[in-house]
Design a protein around this nucleic acid. Structure first.
Lengths: 340, 340
DNA sequence: CTGTTAGCGCGTTCAC
DNA sequence: GTGAACGCGCTAACAG
C-alpha cells in the first residue's frame, strides 16, 4: 500500500519549489492581487500538483479564527434503548448544510460546555468560534449563566419573556393551539395531552392546547394531561395508563411524533382504531410521519429554516452584531390520523 | 450583560501572575511531576480562578495532533423530504461516546473528503487526526483511492474480499440469512425482498436471503426482489408495486426498518394484515421498531459496539498499528410482525 | 526543580 | 511586486 504523506508538505516547501518566498506563496494562495498574475498562477498550479493544502491549525492560530462552530445536541442513551428522536438528525442535517455553506466546520458534542468535567469549553479553549445549543437544558440556570458569559452563542428552544439570550425556535404555543383547534373542529372534545410539560417547549405546546380548548368553550380535564417523556418506551407506557384508567377520551395530542406513534401502537394493541375511535395528532413532522399507518397529522416545525436561522444569528453575533430571537411559524399538516 | 473574555487570557499572563516562567505553567497544567508539588498547586488554582484554559489550537500546532476525529456521514436531503434513517443518529451517538471517551473532538461532515470542491480534506489540512467514513460511497473507486492514500481512515460498511482497507460492519450476509430462515421456519415460502441491491450492504443481505432459500430447498423467484432505495416514500411506492402487480407473496424481508414500516403501511392501506396475511421482517432494530404496530421483527446490528469498534480501530491505525477488519454478529429480534 | 531558547506553519507589517 | 522579520500561544530541548 503506497503511503502518500502530503500532510507533511509545508508552505516553505512550496516556496522553495517555486523559488519565491513564503510570503509570496501565502499571498498567491490567498488570491491576493498584490502578487503578479503569472507568478500567482504558477504557484497555485505547483501547489495543487504537489497536493499541498494550507495547514488550517496554523492559519487559525495566526488569524485567531477557527472557522468551526460547535453544536451541542443532547443525544443520550437510556439503558439499552437510546432516545433517538429523528428530530435531532433532521436538525443536524440542516445545521450541517448551513454551516458548510459558510465554509466552516461543525464540531459535534453531546455534552454542554458548562460541564467541565471532560474537555473544556470549546469556545474559550479556542476550538470553535461559536456555539449552537439545541434545547434548553434541564438546568436552565446553567444555560443562562453560560449565555451571559459568552456572546457567541445561540440556542434552539422555547421563547419565554424572561430569557435574554438569542433563541431560535418555532412558536410552540401556536403549534399546540393549531393541533387542538383542529381536533376540536372535528368535534373531538375529550382531548388527552401526552408530553413532558417540564420541558419548556412542551409546556408551551400544552398552554396552546389549553387556550384552544378555552376558545372553543370546552372545559379542560386536568386528568387528561400526561407527563410523558420523549421516549418511545415510556410514551407507550403512558398511553397504556390512559387506557387502563378507562378514562373517556376521543383524541390525543402528542407532544412529538414519536410519542404519537407509540400511543397509536398502544391503542391498536388495545383494539382501538385510529382515527375512527380516537383522533391523534403529533408534533415535528418527522420523516416517518407521512408513511406511518395511519399517516400522521402533525405540526411541522420547518427544521430546515430553523437550522439556517440559528446559523445566521450565530454568525451575526460573531460579527458583533446585535441579534433578536426568531420565532418560526409552525404549520399543521393534515393527514389521516384524525379522520379528516 | 456582563462580558467576560477569559479567552483572551494567555499562558504568559498566568506565568506573570504566578511569578514563574511560561514553561513552568505549561508543565504544571500538564500535570508534569517535573514541577514542585506546591508551585503546581498554586498555578493550577490560579489558572482555574482566572478561568484560564489552554488554547487548543496553539497546542495542536505545537504537538502536531489535533485531538479531533472527522466523521463523514451521508445524511442527505431529497427534495423536501430528507432521508433521515434513525440508524445514522444511533451511529452518531455511539461514535460521539467512543470519541469523547478518548478525550477527542468529533468533526461532523456530510461531504466525503475527496470531494475537494468545498473545504479541503480535514486530514491533510490538519483539522483532524483521523477519519471515520460511514458507508461505502456510491463511488467505490474514490473511496478505495482515498483509503490507499491515507492510513488514518476506517470505514463502516460491507465486507468484500477485494477491499483492502480496514472496514467495520456487521455480517450482512448472515443477517439476511437469519431473517429469511426465520420466515421460512414459519412456513412462509413466497418471500419478497425490498432493498437497493446496488448498495454493498444490501447486496450481501440479499445474498444471505437467497442462501437461506436454497438451504431450505425453496426456489427463489427473481420477480420478488425489488430494488427499493432507503427512502420511506419510495419504499412505500415499491411496496405498492408489489401489490399492484398482484404477485403472490406471503412475506417481506425489508432491507431496513424504515422500508419495513413503509411496506406495512402500504399493505394495511390495501387491506392486508400483518402478520396474518403477510409476515414482515426489517433490519437495523431502530428505536421505533419495538413500538411500531405491529412490533417489528428485525435484525439488530449492535450499533453501539460498531461505533466503539470503529473508533478503536481508528486509534490503533493512528498509533501506527496494523488493523484487521471487524465483523460484528447480527442478531434476530423476534417480535410480532411475523406472527410467531 | 526551574528558566531560556527555539520553533510548530502560517499571515502580515514594513522595507526594498 | 516581492522578501525579511515578527509573532499568534504553546511545548520541548537544553542548561543550570
Amino acid at each position: 500500500m503506497r503511503e502518500n504523506k502530503p500532510e507533511e508538505l509545508t508552505m516553505a516547501d512550496i516556496a522553495r519549489m517555486a523559488g519565491v518566498s513564503e510570503s509570496t506563496v501565502s499571498r498567491a494562495l490567498a488570491g491576493s492581487d498584490l502578487v503578479a498574475e503569472k507568478t500567482r498562477k504558477r504557484i497555485t498550479e505547483l501547489a495543487s500538483a504537489a497536493e499541498y493544502t494550507v495547514n488550517e491549525g496554523a492559519r487559525s492560530l495566526r488569524l485567531k479564527k477557527t472557522k468551526t462552530i460547535e453544536v451541542v445536541i443532547p443525544i443520550e442513551q437510556h439503558h439499552r434503548h437510546h432516545i433517538s428522536d429523528p428530530f435531532f438528525l433532521d436538525m443536524l442535517g440542516a445545521l450541517a448544510d448551513a454551516i458548510a455553506d459558510r465554509d466552516h466546520d461543525m464540531l459535534l458534542s453531546k455534552i454542554p460546555p458548562w460541564a467541565t468535567d471532560k474537555r473544556s469549553n470549546a469556545l474559550v479553549s479556542g476550538r470553535a468560534d461559536g456555539v449552537i445549543i439545541i434545547g434548553q437544558s434541564p438546568r436552565r440556570d446553567q444555560l443562562r449563566e453560560f449565555t451571559h458569559a459568552h456572546r457567541r452563542v445561540v440556542v434552539w428552544g422555547a421563547h419565554f419573556d424572561d430569557e435574554d439570550y438569542t433563541i431560535v425556535g418555532s412558536d410552540n404555543h401556536e403549534g399546540g393551539r393549531l393541533a387542538a383547534a383542529h381536533l376540536l373542529s372535528l368535534g373531538r372534545k375529550r382531548i388527552a395531552f401526552l408530553g413532558d410539560v417540564s420541558q419548556p417547549e412542551i409546556k408551551l405546546r400544552h398552554a396552546g392546547y389549553l387556550d384552544a380548548l378555552q376558545q372553543a368553550g370546552v372545559a379542560a380535564d386536568e386528568g387528561l394531561t400526561f407527563k410523558a417523556p420523549f421516549d418511545s418506551q415510556e410514551a407507550f407506557a403512558a398511553a397504556k395508563i390512559l387506557l387502563d384508567k378507562k378514562l373517556e377520551f376521543d383524541a390525543i395530542f402528542a407532544a412529538s411524533d414519536v410519542i404519537a406513534m407509540s400511543a397509536i401502537s398502544a391503542l391498536s394493541n388495545a383494539g382501538m382504531k385510529v382515527p375512527q375511535d380516537v383522533s391523534v395528532v403529533g408534533y415535528d413532522d418527522i420523516v416517518g410521519a407521512a408513511w406511518y399507518s395511519p399517516a400522521l397529522t402533525t405540526v411541522s416545525q420547518s427544521i430546515q429554516e430553523g437550522g439556517e436561522a440559528l446559523v445566521r444569528s450565530l454568525f451575526a453575533r460573531i460579527n458583533g452584531e446585535a441579534t433578536a430571537s426568531v420565532v418560526l411559524p409552525p404549520k399543521l399538516i393534515i393527514r389521516q390520523s384524525c379522520g379528516a
